[in-house]
Design a binder for these strands. Sequence first.
DNA 1: CGTTAACTGTGTCTGTCGGACACAGTAAAG
DNA 2: CTTTACTGTGTCCGACAGACACAGTTAACG
Lengths: 229, 229
Amino acid sequence: MTELLWGRQQPPSRGPKPAMTLTGIAEAAIRIADTEGLDAVSMQRVADDLPVTKMALYRYVPGKAELVAVMSDLAIGEPPEHPGLSWREALLAWAMDLFEGFNRHPWLLLSTVGRRPVGPNEAAWLDRGVRALTGSGLNGTEQLDSILVLSGHVRTIALQTATMPGGRQGLTEEAFTASFAGILAAEADRFPSLAAALRTPSGQENQGLAFGLDRILDGLELLISARNA
Amino acid sequence: MTELLWGRQQPPSRGPKPAMTLTGIAEAAIRIADTEGLDAVSMQRVADDLPVTKMALYRYVPGKAELVAVMSDLAIGEPPEHPGLSWREALLAWAMDLFEGFNRHPWLLLSTVGRRPVGPNEAAWLDRGVRALTGSGLNGTEQLDSILVLSGHVRTIALQTATMPGGRQGLTEEAFTASFAGILAAEADRFPSLAAALRTPSGQENQGLAFGLDRILDGLELLISARNA
DNA sequence: CGTTAACTGTGTCTGTCGGACACAGTAAAG
DNA sequence: CTTTACTGTGTCCGACAGACACAGTTAACG
């Protein structure tokens, strides 16, 4: 798995030249996932697009899980550079870039859940995040935990706002809030606090993202200030 | 879907008495998911455990997605009560309870991703969370966004630490960090900040959970203090 | 320059999955 | 006692991941 992700495969000397490349296969899979959703990515479907038979793919990829891992790392790509920013500005830009990446490929929210091998691009993202906190007074574990909180929040908001192609996410944002409001109007007495909170008009777009990032960064700033005092 | 979740189904008058109940089916599915993982929950598998034929289940549930929704809401259960706490203590307890719930049923981390209909128990959790912030000076949207940040962080940490039965999560925590460290040792020059951060010894268990919760709650306290000033 | 060995792409097959559909048995309403 | 609605069941289908054997192709080696 890690060998595939990091490109640690020596090219074979004998035998016919491979007609495809691993990245080519992954790019085809990404194209399908972008337009039709992650559920539409099957070995058969990817093979049809290349076009090649399904079993030919297994010469390049041990299984579907590995293909998803490769296409995920390829899709997130390298993190953008933002030189000359303070740690707070850099972390904010990092989080917004990550949010944009999740919006560009919403299926990443589904394919990158749980413990899994880290690919080179994901490692680069982690490196960029940690780099913003070097010299802040936080130790390495705290630096990693900080960007974990940030990325977790970005994921949370992206999952709520993203629209998945292919109907994996059956409800649109409006349908969701509408059905939620309807249920809660009928059961408002059972959930008084929640019903009251839902009565206040929601703010602008992506308010939840900015709100959480501001709170997290405020909390980090408090800790960093205490460390440097 | 919502009708099922909220028990809005009038019992039929004519015909034979149903031999099963929706909750009985969901409990069987929960038992399977707890011991063998979410992937082991198939219509056939649930039917075999009851025991009944697969198609009999479709008399109670329109499809598998609905079954998963029902079993998820049933598994998370009602939130524990913690009377007489400050808003910060109450939110902390709420987050820890949620973390415990995710640890009791790790498959909830997989079955409750993305926009989906809210069940009665999940609504109760939201209500308890929001209740802690009533009277804090935050408006309804901010209250909801606050518990969203907290629950998102709990999810993030639970996903990293939880061990899924059935091998859905192929890597143990040790195997993951070991492979990660191995890769990064070989490519330390490409990711210097990340490599440096990983060199510091990791702290005690669940440090990431406490770290993030402290930062988020600190940030919230800052905002609440500003509002009340 | 042949021979051989390794590698490629392919076709066939199996087991599992969710789900559609028709059918027979059963129990309550009229 | 008939009708009607509901139950559980058996059969069937298409899609899926993947195992396996096989034929064609190309580079290394004698």
